[in-house]
Design a protein around this nucleic acid. Structure first.
Lengths: 251, 251
DNA sequence: CCTTGACCTTGACGCTGCGTCAACCTCTAA
DNA sequence: TTAGAGGTTGACGCAGCGTCAAGGTCAAGG
């Protein structure tokens, strides 16, 4: 009997369904040293090593990292603990991927409906992350997290309503720009008031929004995609100037 | 107005919710060069750069890689195509994670039922991957894939029945070892026959299984976990010797 | 004027798990 | 004997920055 007491590195690799390179790596990091090393430097493995390799590969397929595998094989006592940890990590990954899938799907859907969506989409993140720092600095972490949770907690219908206001403002600004109204005209200033009211309807963005509003105006002009929402460059310029004037007078 | 025409690297980083290191990286790879570089080497960014950064971070949050993001921002035409690709990748990831969750959960369940499960579990992969190469070499790819699909296509009940046979053999071997029966005794040889019949009930493992069976015996002894399934070291030794004798006489 | 401290710069290594050369022995079968 | 298959040890590459290290720059205070 005992006809195969040991195998070469390639044999072991193919038998276990991995590569010789991986085996050398496992040797390098001390995870699976060969049973014997020939005087020529060749690595030889026996059945015990093969079994250990099987376990390694099994755990690897379950997604564990090599250090984690080493732990499991070393302190064989706590195998379930390690797997349990790993499972919770997997669940987190599931959630994360799930959220990404939802976001990407939604983004694609919007882009397909042709609604200048990249801009709209940007708009969402806009009030939430872009000025996060500023909000936190001026009104504290509480205000920001309230604002953030406010948005996250909105129902789809509420979000839709909010976005309808965006659309309404957008078309009114566009129309005004098309009609060539002046930034300091009553019409433009009325729109500016609506715009600011709409903005300040977000909890966490109270009083002293002058610079905030002015900054927004700059952004609109800086980005032709935002500009597109307000009737192109002319529209964006109108919005910026009207907001600046309104902010100066009323805020 | 225009009070903030440009910002320092830290300001931009905090404002956009990232780090200065990331911005330097984006500069290095040409994804987002600073608007202006001072004579002192300092990086300065304006509103346009901030907007671009926002887009970068948005796409990054959706899980796209930096080269992919560069493509999207460069050829703004094909944004949905890129996202669609990414989405299918995300779906694959979901599947993969899902399978891992199932596997890990199942493994934990088994380990908790205390059934020497690590060994059982190993056992599964055992007949399927470990000898894949050998099976393929001797009986061809067809035989292997038949064997493999055989296992995969088994119903839960069938798998349970098969595992019941394992359990039955296990306890009988353990009992025999405890009674101190000799490897060449009728009792041990009867068990060996059952063992071999059980093994050969797997399609793809026909005739000429002598070396296969002998190799199994060695494995049982080499690994104390397998040994535990057969009544410890003494049991494993009994199994090995009995199988060797049986193989010599009958295979 | 000098110091302190905050902020900036350019390297360069580290992390994960090997794939993939490169340059060079060793063994086996014809 | 010679080709060809297989073995060895480096060492780079990948993704996306985190994290020192070593050293300029700038604004404010003693």
């Amino acid at each position: 009997m005992q006809q195969h007491v040991e195998w070469s590195i390639q044999d072991i690799a193919k038998r276990a369904g991995t590569t010789s390179r991986a085996l050398r790596h496992y040797d390098d990091i001390g995870l699976l040293p060969p049973t014997r090393i020939g005087s020529n430097g060749y690595r030889y493995y026996d059945a015990t090593a093969l079994v250990r390799l099987q376990r390694i590969l099994l755990l690897r397929d379950l997604g564990l990292g090599l250090p984690a595998i080493a732990d499991v094989l070393k302190t064989a006592t706590d195998a379930t603990g390690a797997l349990r940890n790993h499972l919770s990590w997997l669940h987190k990954e599931q959630d994360r991927i799930g959220r990404q899938v939802a976001s990407v799907t939604e983004t694609i859907r919007r882009m397909e409906r042709g609604e200048q969506l990249m801009a709209e989409n940007m708009f969402d993140g806009f009030d939430h992350t872009q000025y996060k720092d500023e909000v936190v600095e001026r009104w504290g972490e509480d205000a920001y997290s309230r604002s953030d949770s406010w948005w996250r907690s909105m129902s789809a219908a509420e979000k839709a309503k909010w976005q309808a206001q965006v659309a309404s403002l957008s078309s009114d600004w566009t129309a005004a720009a098309g009609a060539g109204v002046a930034p300091d005209s009553d019409e433009a200033q009325t729109l500016a008031r609506r715009h600011v009211e709409w903005l300040t309807s977000i909890p966490g963005t109270p009083g002293a929004v002058q610079e905030y509003v002015t900054g927004l105006g700059e952004m609109y002009v800086a980005d032709e995609r935002f500009a597109a929402n307000y009737g192109g460059e002319a529209g964006a310029t109108l919005v910026r100037d009207a907001l600046a004037i309104y902010a100066n007078r009323n805020l």
